[in-house]
Design a protein around this nucleic acid. Structure first.
Length: 305
DNA sequence: ACAGTTTGACCTCCG
DNA sequence: CCGGAGGTCAAACTG
């Protein structure tokens, strides 16, 4: 009964809060596991290379202090990071890439938001936000295209050592000066999952084109408005009940940190689900605003009575 | 002719 | 210094 209470997982219900499709936010993600990587202290980060950051990005979640996150776009696009070609390029790739996963076909996606500190030559460092999104697609689809509302131009493809599937490199094609890049590669463990890594921040509004509505507007039954964030106090699962869908669906990231995997397994367990439902019911019935709103909605549906 | 993609070569980093 | 690996460039190709 108190599984959820005993669980390290904290449930955060989002009831009655309309989802806002922020152009540069992961809010529109369907099923989303969001891990904000700390890499907090510049002091620590000064010794952290971008490759280390990449390793973190690709393999690990670390605990994150709160207050994490937003950074001005101006810092994101800092052109001055003469730490060598690879490093400087990575350094240019900063921050939030916006709403990245309107799902292409099967719609289940998982995103990680990761900030890493990129050391600069002058001894300072600056935060890079990298977002990785796992999207389920048809395994027979080899296009490595993840539609996210932005226009991308492919500029390279490479087979990496740890994954037989090729990795495709894309640049934002909407604005020539947009520093955002993304890498798309099938998961080594599950060919039906593609991992898209977004680096950098769009310096332009999202192109609005017919048929490319924000993902939160287009996502269908396959997506669940749920997010998982991991912080020092333990993982928090957020269910947005303002959207359609409703079950709990967990997609395990192939390279997810063991902690996240553990959380995913826990979340997927029947015991947890039962406790989740129970706690949801408790939360809902105990929320006066919710019951009032529910009553009002029912009354509206029954105008003749 | 043009825009986008493919793909081999090249560059840089790192161990 | 060297070799491997990831990332990018740019010519060739394609629709």
């Amino acid at each position: 009964m108190d599984t959820a209470r005993r669980s390290p997982v904290c449930l955060d219900l989002m009831v009655g809060l309309p989802m806002v499709c922020e152009p540069s936010s992961a809010r529109c993600t369907g099923m989303r596991a969001q891990a904000d990587i700390a890499s907090s202290a510049c002091g620590r980060a000064t010794s952290m290379t971008s490759s280390e950051a990449n390793k973190i990005m690709e393999a690990k979640f670390t605990e994150s202090p709160e207050g994490e996150g937003e950074q001005p776009a101006s810092t994101a696009a800092s052109p001055t990071s003469p730490v060598g070609k690879k490093r400087s390029r990575e350094s240019m790739d900063t921050s939030d890439s916006g709403d990245v996963n309107s799902d292409k076909k099967m719609g289940t996606a998982e995103a990680e938001h990761i900030d890493v500190e990129s050391p600069l030559s002058n001894g300072t460092c600056r935060r890079i936000k990298v977002k990785r999104v796992c999207t389920r697609i048809d395994p027979s689809d080899t296009s490595l295209v993840v539609k996210d509302g932005y226009q991308w131009r492919k500029y390279g493809q490479k087979v990496t050592r740890d994954n037989p599937s090729p990795r495709a490199y894309f640049r934002c094609a909407f604005a020539p000066s947009c520093p955002v890049k993304k890498k798309v590669q099938r998961s080594a463990e599950d060919s039906s999952v593609v991992e898209a890594t977004y680096e950098g921040e769009h310096n332009h509004p999202r192109p609005t084109r017919a048929g490319e509505l924000p993902s939160c507007a287009t996502q269908g039954g396959g997506s669940v408005p749920c997010s998982i964030s991991i912080n020092s106090s333990g993982p928090t699962i957020t269910l947005d009940l303002t959207k359609n869908g409703g079950g709990v669906q967990v997609v395990e990231a192939g390279e997810a940190q063991p902690d996240l995997k553990k959380v995913c397994r826990e979340v997927a367990s029947p015991e947890f689900r039962a406790a989740l439902v129970e706690q949801m019911a408790r939360e809902l019935t105990g929320d006066r605003k919710f019951t009032d709103a529910l009553a009002a909605a029912i009354l509206r549906k029954l105008p003749d009575y």
